[in-house]
């Protein structure tokens, strides 16, 4: 007979036994040891039917296919760019995927993206951990001019985006800022003036800090309304 030893949405530490018996299936962040299911990371338990997984609460960004990330051009080669996305190894941006326009072979690549440029790109492939391919073809993927970059813990990114982007859209709407959230915890904010950017920044930090508390959306809404009333006319 299988027993569940923890409740849904509790915080567990590595090595904690989550369930006994063969009825449950281990998913991300947990593993099976004989007939027990054991946590492998510090995280929140998420039980979906018979599947047990963990939502990690901390840790560095680990590149995944299809993630949109914000990176900095670190190197320019003959056939593309190397981009720092906050992982141990730099990602590749090949010529073919770099732009919707045709880039001739042998062209001066710094015309397109120069050293230090910030870009929003999508991960197309992760093979091993050393080779990560990026693409710039897609909606919203572009070189980011102006604005500023803030960094948050990558594990908090889902909360900042919210359900179907509800949270980030709320901030965009109230502050009139352009915001791009990278899955690697880097967030680009560009507003009409420094005050709006500051309000957007503070609200994102507030989400990061209070992400584990109830009623977050309402509190952020209140925070934004107060900020708009006090500072931005």
């Amino acid at each position: 007979m299988s027993d569940l030893l923890v409740k849904d949405r509790t915080i567990v530490v590595p090595g904690e036994i989550l369930a006994e018996g063969m009825d449950y299936i281990p998913s991300y962040g947990v593993f099976r040891e004989q007939n027990r299911i054991v946590a492998m990371q510090l995280g929140l338990v998420s039980i979906n039917g018979r599947v047990i997984k963990l939502i990690p609460l901390s840790g560095r960004y680990i590149p995944k296919k299809a993630d949109v990330v914000i990176g900095k051009v670190a190197d320019i080669g003959f056939y593309g760019w190397r981009v720092d996305i906050g992982w141990a190894f730099q990602a590749n941006l090949g010529l073919k995927d770099a732009s919707s326009e045709f880039i001739e072979k042998g062209a001066d690549l710094s015309q397109y993206y120069d050293y230090g440029d910030i870009i929003a790109a999508q991960i197309t492939n992760v093979s091993g951990s050393k080779i990560i391919d990026l693409s710039m073809k897609g909606p919203g993927l572009k070189k980011l001019k102006g604005g500023k970059i803030i960094e948050v813990s990558p594990s908090k990114v889902p909360r900042i985006i919210g359900k179907q982007g509800s949270m980030v859209n709320l901030i965009k709407e109230k502050t009139n800022c352009k915001i791009i959230v990278g899955q690697n915890g880097k967030i680009w904010i560009s507003g009409l003036n420094p005050e709006t950017e500051l309000l957007a920044t503070n609200s994102i930090y507030k989400i990061e800090q209070e992400s584990h508390l109830d009623g977050l959306t309402d509190r952020i809404k209140e925070f934004l309304d107060k900020g708009v009333k006090n500072g931005l006319q």
Binding site: K7, T10, L42, L44, D214
Partner: peptide, 16 residues
């Protein structure tokens, strides 16, 4: 274990 759980807000049952 206690210290690790406290860092992320105790039991935090109402998360997400």
């Amino acid at each position: 274990r206690q210290a690790l759980k406290e860092r992320y807000g105790g039991s935090a049952q109402d998360e997400l």
